[in-house]
Amino acid sequence: MSTRPVWQERPTVFGLTLKTVVLTLIVLAMVYPIYVVVLTSLSTARAVTEAGGLVTLPGELSLDAYRELFGGGVVTRAVLVSTGVTVVGTALSLGLTILAAYGLSRPGSVLHRPLLFMFLLTFLFTPGMIPSYLIVRELGLIDSYWSLILPTAVSAFNLVVMRAFFMNIPGEVLDSARIDGASDFRILWRIVLPMSKGVTAVIGLFYAVGYWNAFFNAVLYINDNSKWPLQLILRQYVQQGMSLVPNQRAVDTVAGYALPPNLAIKMAIIVVALVPVLLIYPFVQRHFTKGVIIGAVKG
């Protein structure tokens, strides 16, 4: 807790109150919707009926909605698809980006300028949706999971960020390793990467979140709805309101057997899409404040 510098005037009561209120409202605007959604997903049919919709105060709780989702079926499959794409995609992207960022980190090496220029030029012009689609189709990747990975595998922005970071590593360290006869692969693996854990974590998060959230590419390239990733399921069953349990009403009336309410299931799908981000985020967040990104953005 830092204190007010001596030259700064005492805050007025009015100003302080206003600031507190505004900041509280901002935090609530971010947190409250998530709280309501999570709570509803954990509520029983009776609690949802009593609330008349979304549940704002904790009542009767149950995990039925999640049991329903993970008991096999559409959502289970979509979670597996999204997880697979995210894991494979992030590993590939991170690997390629690290390699290329290091490969381009030494000015004066063979083809350094033209290759770097090739990446930088991608900032100025995007090829457009139709030609990109035609290429993916030409390569036979429609309805293949690779269509969700390969087109977005290398982000020039992340590459430039990473490269800027590598170039800040003191040259003496690398030079001495080189004189000792270490190969570039070895230098990258043994010296550069251990010094770049923060930036690697942040870029990894960027890629992972990108793959987990991928929607546009899936809309374009995946026609077969048995291969849909989670975001498309989220759209169909939550945003467009299709029911996961078609004969809900009929089943509901069977005495002594209460299915989780439709609303709780929908909210549970939102939570499932949300949780991985919420889980990884705190581990990476501290690197944001350490200026990893700022340096890059300014770089």
């Binding site: 998060l205 959230n213 929607f215 989220l234 759209r235 939550v238 939102i270 899409a273 949300l274």
Partner: peptide, 10 residues
């Protein structure tokens, strides 16, 4: 870090 689908759904 939330997807647009998630934001729109919320």
């Amino acid at each position: 870090f939330f997807s647009w689908v998630l934001v729109v759904a919320l």
